[in-house]
Simulated scan of single mutants.
Amino acid sequence: MSSTAPHGVLPHGDELFAVTRLAADSQSLTPGDIVVLFDIDTAPIGGTEIWYLCSGLVDGAAPMWKGNTYAPHPIVAEGFEWAGRGQLPRPKLTVGNALGLLQAAVVQYNDLLGAKVTRWKTLKKYLDGQPNADPDTHYIPDIYHVDRKVSQTKGMIEFDLSAALDQQGVMLPRRQIIRDACTETYRKWDATTGQFVPGTCPYAGTAKFTAKDAPTDAAHLDVCSHKLSGCKARYGADSELPFSGFPAVSRTR
């Protein structure tokens, strides 16, 4: 097993500790099974959906890690290997389509172009619920974005992925200009701990609102609409808002 960071990025801090720990595991007589998990995140393209997927059950159950349940689903990924020189890899991701898992999102978000795909690799003993559970011990993740949809049938959807530095049509500014949608990740209620898991959105107030910006007292219903109205509801209409969309972009000709 390799502990080399992809694309020449050297690990540091907690990442270095995790790599060292995994290197020690690899040299033991019983390192344990490697588990591969996938996150498909629509936040970079203005969506709110994140799919947590894996290719099969672990000990007869859907694996849990970092507080997320990874649903077993037909998924095949290949082409992530990189020798450290030459062109960056352009992996392929094939996701089963018989149940229509990504069907609606493919239509809504222009074939998911730009969606973020993260491939995690860790050992079974570090999954949630294991005696040695540790969400921070994992191999350096492979992070790519959907570059194009190669094909789609009733049974599967195939995507080409590319690294952030190797995407076609990359322009300045690097952020995607979306008028009506905030791309920050909003906090999520964890019923197990009774606390919010923070996202990239800085909001940490006590007021809660539903996905339609209606006030609510239920923590599990506190979901941001990712619209400017969601920011105004939480911070106040006359306050400085951390909205990451571009509401004035339509005025530019």
Rank of each mutant, 00 (worst) to 15 (best):
V146H: 01
A5W: 08
H12Q: 13
C224S: 12
V223K: 02
K92Q: 10
H7K: 10
S239K: 14
G32T: 05
F196M: 10
D142C: 09
F17A: 13
S225R: 01
W51R: 11
L113D: 04
S244N: 08
P44Y: 08
F246G: 00
A211S: 13
E240C: 00
I140Y: 14
Y52W: 11
V197Q: 09
A219I: 04
Y235N: 03
L221P: 04
L10G: 03
G79P: 01
C182T: 05
A248N: 09
G199Q: 13
T153P: 05
Q168W: 09
A5I: 02
Y144E: 06
T118M: 07
P6A: 04
K212F: 11
I75T: 06
K121D: 10
V223D: 00
S250V: 03
P6M: 10
D128M: 11
K66H: 09
V35Q: 04
I75S: 00
N97D: 12
Q167I: 10
G60T: 05
D166E: 09
H12A: 15
T48C: 05
H73G: 04
G205R: 09
W120I: 07
H73T: 10
S26E: 15
D33L: 12
Y203D: 05
T185F: 13
G32I: 05
D142F: 10
H226R: 15
T200K: 09
Y139F: 15
C231I: 00
V35C: 08
T94H: 01
F38I: 10
A133Q: 14
M156I: 00
M156D: 07
A219G: 05
L102C: 07
P89W: 08
S244P: 04
S229Y: 03
G230F: 00
A133K: 11
D134L: 07
V107T: 13
G96D: 13
R175M: 12
P247H: 01
P141R: 11
E81I: 07
G8Q: 06
A248Q: 11
G96E: 07
P91W: 04
P247F: 02
S26Y: 08
C224D: 01
Y144V: 05
H145Q: 12
F80I: 12
G129W: 14
P11H: 01
G79K: 06
W51A: 04
P63I: 02
L112T: 07
L221F: 07
R179H: 06
P242H: 03
